[in-house]
Design a protein around this nucleic acid. Structure first.
Lengths: 238, 238
DNA sequence: TTCGCAAAAATGGTATACCATAATGCCAAA
DNA sequence: TTTGGCATTATGGTATACCATTTTTGCGAA
């Protein structure tokens, strides 16, 4: 079964791990998640169990588990006849997800004000500084990853584990859209300003202000994403 | 393999369905979820793949998929050596989950004020009335289910699909604890009063008041659950 | 009686075979 | 050329066999 072993241009080493090894399903889910987020597998594309398993060098059994995981995360959908495909959320669906994300981050901000250790808040401020410096720099992916990490750090600082986990799921669902939006490079200054407001409120441990700042930030995100995707829709393939 | 076919005292008919049949994994997940919520499988108990699959009359393959689903829902945990067991959240973990639930319901309330149709709000009010009448009635499960349905209706009225889905997951995680709390029958009057406040704010389509009422209601839930579980912890098996 | 350790049993992970059904392609008829 | 339907292919669902590890058991020595 060497049929499509080179699909996705995987080097064999990509699938080697050190002990204690996680299950192949978890590894496959990680790989597929990355492929989906980076659009190496395009939105809406069918995911053939046999071909994909072969491409990853595993059997269908762990691959199917990976698909179940990604379905729960909202990155994979099933047709009525149970054919798995990469999720392709509409702008409306993305907006709905972003509203939930906003509520989650607002709660995280409130909790962080009450429970976060000084170091956690310092780390958030530090990440903000780094992002600010990168403002001049034009590497979109690095800027974006730092942005994501700052949000993730705030949520983790809340000390609420299920909250962090749910936030991670929504992050995965929204990653691609947010990256597209971020790459547009529009509103980067606004992003930094809003981050500054968040850091200020968080440092003052003002729950209401922190929550408000995070909500504002997410509202901007919704706006920017809508603009970016509509722009993109009009220019399908550059 | 007739070894433990009578585990859980399942009649064979319990596992028959009409066309078009969902996957065995989904059916098994539904069954197991119910077993876990009703404590037919006690918290902390190991879930042997072979025995459980045999008990449900299916093979390990769909059973494993079901376990993956329930893991994502937070009803099943895995030991470091990957033995699946029924989750047994601590009071602290339950409180963390309830905080998230509160944020989700508050958001749902706000959105429902803006987007819900008249009929949706009427249905919430109607459910509230029914619950109020049952206040005299002493059937805890019926009272509880009606309570859950009212919350579910509010969330659905928000029109936000991912929000409803995430809320459903948190509901599953918290179901058992809330049922135990509800069964104690304490604070039932307070519950109805808080429901009344929610219905009033929702009927007035006042987002802030609705969100506040829902937050208050969830805060009461946290309080009651803590009391009920601590009480129960002191009296392990009556 | 208790502790340690080795043998035995049980468990989860993975690969694979087979089945029913859905998707696809092809050819004949209009 | 288009269309309808049949044959073929591809696909996902399920069951099962086998393996490496883990867990339990049980025996013997301290």
């Amino acid at each position: 079964m060497e049929k499509k072993a080179d699909l996705f241009n995987l080097k064999p080493d990509d699938l080697s791990w050190d002990l204690p090894r996680p299950t192949l399903a978890a590894v496959a889910a990680d790989k597929l998640r990355e492929f989906i987020l980076l659009e190496k597998i395009p939105p809406g594309a069918f995911i053939s169990e046999r071909d994909t398993a072969a491409a990853l060098g595993i059997s269908r059994t762990p691959l199917r588990s990976a698909l179940v995981i990604l379905e729960q995360e909202g990155l994979v959908d099933y047709t009525p006849t149970r054919r798995p495909k990469v999720a392709d959320p509409s702008i409306k669906e993305l907006a709905q997800n972003l509203l939930v994300m906003g509520a989650l981050e607002a709660l995280a901000g409130e909790l962080a004000c009450r429970h976060a250790r000084k170091e956690d808040i310092a780390r958030v401020a530090q990440l903000h500084e780094k992002i600010n410096q990168r403002g001049r720099n034009d590497d979109p992916l690095a800027f974006f990853r730092a942005d994501m990490r700052m949000h993730e750090t705030i949520v983790n600082a809340s000390g609420n584990i299920p909250l962090a986990e749910t936030h991670r799921q929504y992050n995965a669902r929204l990653w691609r859209a947010r990256f597209i939006s971020s790459r547009r490079n529009a509103g980067r200054q606004q992003t930094c300003d809003e981050h500054a407001a968040i850091v200020k409120a968080l440092s003052a441990r003002d729950p209401r202000a922190t929550a408000a700042a995070l909500r504002t930030h997410l509202a901007s995100a919704i706006h920017n994403i809508k603009a970016a995707l509509q722009e993109r829709q009009e220019t399908p393939n550059p």
